[in-house]
Write a protein that binds this DNA or RNA. Structure first.
Lengths: 227, 227
DNA sequence: TTACTTTCGGGACTGGGTACCATAGCTTGT
DNA sequence: ACAAGCTATGGTACCCAGTCCCGAAAGTAA
């Protein structure tokens, strides 16, 4: 009968109390007490009260960064799609925990704001990466990068929220489809002269991480074949 | 030599102190003291310390709501463009104040988060309106509404930030162009059968608020003529 | 055992935010 | 002019999140 580590006990106590009394009616002292620990220990494990609910947001940001960073110019779009899928998978694997978090953020304004702020950081990452890829901060490209980054995270959030509401049984397929739709909105630079053309052509040269690239590669190729 | 009202004196004192010592190094007591008022009076005029910097965010939300609400199905896109222009104009008219706020939000993480949360509320408004316009929460439409709303506010923010950084001398023209670009990304539903087609056709039937509609109407018509 | 390191708890403090109450000032009606 | 009443204000006490510091425990190595 060994106790689980403090972090876990604190998180369990926190979610239990949030469910019972609500977020704002629960103080950090309450959480620490139920976990059988001191208030100081709580703040040693979580930077803030909100952090119990959004613990590994930083890790997730690094996950995206790591997936985007090594990609070459020709694999940029695949990297974006993969990074998005990575984030979605992270939440899906959390399973019930993610749904409880969603229930909380739906009710408590402060938590919703914090969630949105986090999304803003993801979007910033994508925006910078896409702007780089499109080539510097020259004006038309800069706007297009902003639009594309916004669309990318919007697509992700859309599918994620559907899954959180149990409206989707296969979120990974859905997010791939959504990303295809997003990429179809933005004509590839320099591929077709008319900006109105809707066909996107992506060329692959070299692929590190072939295993993880494969699924989206296949989808993109299928997409190209269909149209 | 009559004193200006408390609200103003508090805001002046706050911005002055933020400039001198920075946001986090300034307490609400400091602000009240410099304004020659009590701490209680501060919180009567502003809900929170952050609220001194973002005072009329609620008013701005209602401004958007009011502009979107009365628009009919055929004028929906114009309403969106107009609402965006309205928000941009609001900031532009604030002039220097908006730039000081931008300087603060660029440095202080808590303020940046709050700003992003506000943007999230705008986006939600647009998303709901656009989803309504596209017709209910049926799946493909719902995603497209989400994408479009994200693109709309991204375009606005892009132009606004350019103006805040003094990189734009005519933000209104710029935002109109950016909105044209955004709308061009999304083929009008039911107008051209191929989703790849890049031409957008918008039909007008009735226009209340003709005066305010005119400029964007003209731009849209010109845009249609060009392509 | 001793010595070192890690984890924990408690207590004191800062600062944002709320609630309540008392008072000064201004307006009204008479 | 006087009283009644409203509004803006100040002050005090309070709650709670978050930080800092120090001392105690508990595990680890020698």
């Amino acid at each position: 009968m060994s106790k689980p580590p403090a972090r876990i006990r604190l998180a369990d106590a926190a979610f239990a109390l949030f469910d019972e009394r609500g977020y704002e009616q629960t103080t950090v002292d309450d959480i620490a007490e139920r976990a059988g620990l001191g208030r100081t220990t709580f703040f040693r494990n979580y930077r803030s009260k909100e952090d119990v609910i959004f613990p590994d947001h930083d890790r997730l940001l690094e996950l995206i960064r790591d997936r985007l960073a090594p990609s070459s110019h020709s694999t940029a779009l695949v990297a974006v799609s993969d990074a998005v899928r990575l984030v979605l998978l992270h939440y899906v694997e959390e399973g019930d925990l993610a749904r409880r978090r969603y229930a909380l953020t739906s009710k408590v304004a402060a938590l919703r704001d914090r969630e949105i702020a986090s999304v803003g950081r993801y979007q910033r990452l994508f925006r910078e990466f896409i702007a780089d890829w499109m080539g510097g901060p020259t004006e038309p490209a800069s706007l297009r990068a902003e639009l594309m980054a916004a669309a990318v995270v919007a697509a992700h959030n859309h599918v994620l929220r559907r899954w959180l509401r149990s409206e989707s049984s296969d979120p990974v397929t859905e997010v791939d489809e959504a990303m295809r739709e997003v990429l179809a909105l933005f004509p590839a630079p320099g591929s077709s002269p008319q900006p109105g053309g809707g066909t996107t052509v992506v060329a692959f040269r070299t692929g590190q991480d072939i295993d993880t690239l494969l699924p989206s590669l296949r989808r993109l190729v299928e997409d190209g074949a269909e149209r």
